[in-house]
Every structure is written in C-alpha cells, then in structure tokens.
C-alpha cells in the first residue's frame, strides 16, 4: 500500500543542524519527516516557492537532461527506511517504457516538484515513523519551529 504525500514545509532542526522536509497525507493524519542537508533543503525550497534562480540549479539541470530526451517523471515513492536512512524510487517513462531509478529522497522530491509529479510513501515507512521516539521529539517542537511554507 502506498499513500500520496504532499510537501507541507521545511523546517530547521537545530539539534542536528539539518533540515526536515515534512510530508503529510491529504487527510493530515500521517506525517513523514525526512532529514536532509542544507543544499538539498535549498533545492526543495526553491522549487516549492516557485522561484526561478538566475542560473539553473542542479535539479533544473537534471530536469533539462530528462526533457532533452522526453523522459517524464511519473511519480516518486519514499520506499524504505533502514537504519534511519530513507530510500526513494523515481518512476519514469521513456520511449513507451517504464523505468525505476533508485534515489535519495531529497533528489526525488526536488525532481518531483519540478516535474509536477506526485510523491508517494510506502505504508511501512509511515508506520515505522509513527514510533514513540518520533512523537516525543515532535511534541517538544514549538509551532514556530515549523517553516513559513506550511501555509
């Protein structure tokens, strides 16, 4: 089972000096936080805010590369969680064939937003994240810790 997720925002995690991409399902019941580095967060943030940077950034370059040969991103799936590391798969169409390419979630999400492709998460990943540890962590976060993108 997979659930469609939407990028609800980006927040800074001061404890780990990293950024968290918050994915939520459409009923706002499931939440999936993914920790990413600063450049990865920047790549997602630029796409979310629909800012056209003066020069094409890495994921814009990636999109041009795919566009050059009419390869289309159909969807991305946050597929697995292993030892605190998430894994994602990018599904693409190229010349009537479907391809699945392994990716980091940050690249997959940055590319999905630029391609208007849906983002899904495996139920197992969401369930694993619904652990007590995460809930305790989230309880300690103040509302103002959430980014302005969560509008």
């Amino acid at each position: 089972m997979i659930t469609q997720m939407h990028v609800k925002g980006l927040m800074f995690d001061p404890y780990n000096n990293a950024y968290i991409v918050i994915l939520r399902d459409e009923h706002q019941t499931d939440m999936l936080p993914i920790w990413v580095g600063k450049p990865e967060a920047g790549a997602i943030s630029l796409a979310l805010e629909d800012v056209a940077p003066p020069r094409p950034m890495t994921h814009d370059f990636m999109k041009s590369y795919l566009d050059a040969y009419n390869a289309k991103v159909i969807s991305v799936v946050i597929s697995d969680l292993n030892e605190n590391t998430y894994f994602a798969k990018i599904h693409l169409m190229h010349e009537d064939s479907e391809y699945t390419v392994d990716s980091r979630p940050s690249d997959a999400i940055a590319l999905a937003i630029r391609s208007q492709a849906p983002i899904f998460a495996n139920e197992s990943v969401i369930r694993k994240q619904g652990s007590d540890e995460l809930e305790r962590w989230l309880e300690n976060l103040k509302p103002e810790d959430f980014g302005k993108l969560d509008s």
Binding site: H59, M62, Y65, L92, Y99, V101, D102, S103, R104, D107
Partner: peptide, 18 residues
C-alpha cells in the same frame, strides 16, 4: 555510500542509453 545528485543524472543516462 549513497548516490548524490550527479550520480542520479549518470544513473538516468545508464537507464536510457544517453
């Protein structure tokens, strides 16, 4: 240990024969 952004572009190329 994990493919970075440009490794992903390389991977696309390998899949599509680019």
């Amino acid at each position: 240990p994990r493919p970075m952004s440009h490794d992903l572009v390389k991977s696309f190329g390998e899949h599509f024969g680019i």
